[in-house]
Design a binder for these strands. Structure first.
Lengths: 219, 219
DNA sequence: GCCTGAGTTATACATTTGGATAATCTCGCG
DNA sequence: CGCGAGATTATCCAAATGTATAACTCAGGC
C-alpha cells in the first residue's frame, strides 16, 4: 500500500535555481508573498520542499534571489528597447516609452510581483539597495533620452521632466496592467506617447508611426 | 504565580471595530498582509485575539472591512479637496491634483496599504467591486474637472486626458511616497501641476499660486 | 558492473496561524 | 447594592509553515 519513492531526474544547479526562482515569482505575482510557501514553490517547480533548502540556505535567500532576478530582467528589457532603433532622439525616446507600455513589461503579473515585493523590499536593506539602483537606472536612462532632444533645457528642468515622465509611465503601467480590459489595444501606448510629448513639448507620435504595437519595425 | 486576568474596559462596538480596522491597516501598511495576523492586530489594538472574532465573523471579514474603510477614506479626502475652493475651473482642478500629492494621501503607509491589498483585491470579487468603484469615481471626478476647462475637447479626448492625468498623479503618488527623501518639499506638487497643465494645455501653476502647501488658502 | 558522492526525497519537529469554546469580568439597570 | 447580559479574556485545537535530518537514488569514475 505504501507507494514507491517518487522518481526524479538530476539537473544542473543552474536550471534548478532558475526553476525555483521562476516558481517563486509566478506565485508571488498571482497571490502575493503569502502564496509563496515553500511547499507551493516546490510543487510548482516539480520538486519536493526539501530541495529548496539544498539550493538556498533559507527561504528568504530564495525570495531575495527571485527579486534580484526580476530587477535584472526589467533592466535588460529596457536596454533591448533601444536596440536597433534609429539615432533620432525623438525616435529613441518614443521607443523607450512604448517599450514600457506593452508586454512583457505591461503585464498583470509584473505589477503583482512588484506590489508583492514592496514590503519585503522596504524591510530588507539588501533588497532596498537593489531596488533603488534599478529604479534610478531607469530614470537616468529616461533623463538621458530627454536631454538628447533638440531643445533648450537646464539641469533642474531635465530632472523635473524625467520625474514626471517616469511617473506617467509608471502610472500607465499600473493602470494598463491592472485593468487590461478597459483599454483598446495600443491605447495605453498612444496616450503615453502623446502625454510624454506634451510634457516635453515634442511630438513623439509622429516619430513612432513606423513602430508597430509589437515593437518591430514595419517594413 | 499565576497572574490575574487582565483587566479591560468595555467599549462601544463602533470604537472597537474602528480600532481593530485601524490596527489592521497600519500593520498591512508596514509589513504587508503577512504581518497582519490576528495576534498582531489584537496586540496593536490593545485587546486579546479572541475579541476579533466577536466583532468580525472571520479574519477575512476584518480584512475586507479594513479595505473598504480605506477606500471610503480616500474618496472623502478627494471630496474635501474641492471644499471651499473657488469656482474657476483651473483653480478647482489644481486643488484636486495638489490634494492627491500631499499628505495624508501622499504617504508611505498609504502606498504600502495599497500594494498590500492588491492581491487580496484581485482574488476577492467583493473587494474587486469596491476597488473598481473607487477607482472609477476618482477618474470620473478628474474627467469632470477637465471637461469644465475653457477648451474645446470631444469625449474621446477627455477620456484619454483623464487616463493620462490619473496615471501621472498615481505615478507621482507612488514615487513621492516611496522615496520621500528624494524630493524637495512641494516639488512633487509643482511637477504634478505643471505636467497636468502641459497635457491639457492650460497653466495650472498660475491658478494654484494662492494655495499653500498645506492646502489652506493664504490670507 | 559496482560503488561512491551528490542530488533528491521522505519524514519529523517546533512554531505560528486562524478558529472554537468556556470561563470571567465589566457595566447599565432595577 | 445586587444582578444579569454580553463584552472580553483565557485556553485549547487542528492545520499550515519554515527548518532540520535521515534515507534513498541517480549518475559518472574506476
Amino acid at each position: 500500500m505504501d507507494q514507491p519513492r517518487r522518481q526524479y531526474r538530476r539537473e544542473s544547479e543552474q536550471s534548478r535555481r532558475a526553476s525555483l526562482i521562476a516558481a517563486t515569482q509566478s506565485l508571488v505575482a498571482e497571490g502575493g508573498p503569502q502564496a509563496a510557501t515553500v511547499r507551493a514553490i516546490a510543487a510548482r517547480a516539480g520538486v519536493t520542499p526539501g530541495l529548496i533548502r539544498h539550493y538556498f540556505r533559507t527561504k528568504d535567500d530564495l525570495t531575495r534571489a527571485a527579486y534580484i532576478a526580476l530587477m535584472d530582467g526589467m533592466t535588460d528589457k529596457g536596454a533591448d528597447a533601444l536596440e536597433g532603433v534609429g539615432a533620432m532622439p525623438e525616435e529613441r525616446l518614443a521607443a523607450f516609452v512604448a517599450a514600457g507600455l506593452r508586454p512583457p513589461v505591461l503585464d498583470s503579473a509584473a505589477v503583482g510581483l512588484w506590489a508583492g515585493y514592496m514590503h519585503q523590499v522596504r524591510n530588507d536593506p539588501v533588497l532596498l539597495q537593489v531596488h533603488e539602483a534599478g529604479y534610478l537606472r531607469y530614470r537616468d536612462a529616461l533623463e538621458a533620452l530627454i536631454a538628447a532632444l533638440p531643445r533648450e533645457a537646464d539641469a533642474a528642468q531635465l530632472r523635473a521632466e524625467a520625474i514626471a515622465c517616469n511617473a506617467l509611465i509608471d502610472g500607465l503601467w499600473v493602470e494598463g496592467s491592472l485593468l487590461p480590459g478597459s483599454f483598446a489595444p495600443g491605447e495605453i501606448i498612444t496616450i503615453g506617447l502623446r502625454s510624454v510629448g506634451a510634457i516635453l513639448g515634442v511630438d513623439l507620435l509622429a516619430h513612432s508611426a513606423m513602430v508597430s504595437d509589437t515593437g518591430k519595425k514595419l517594413t
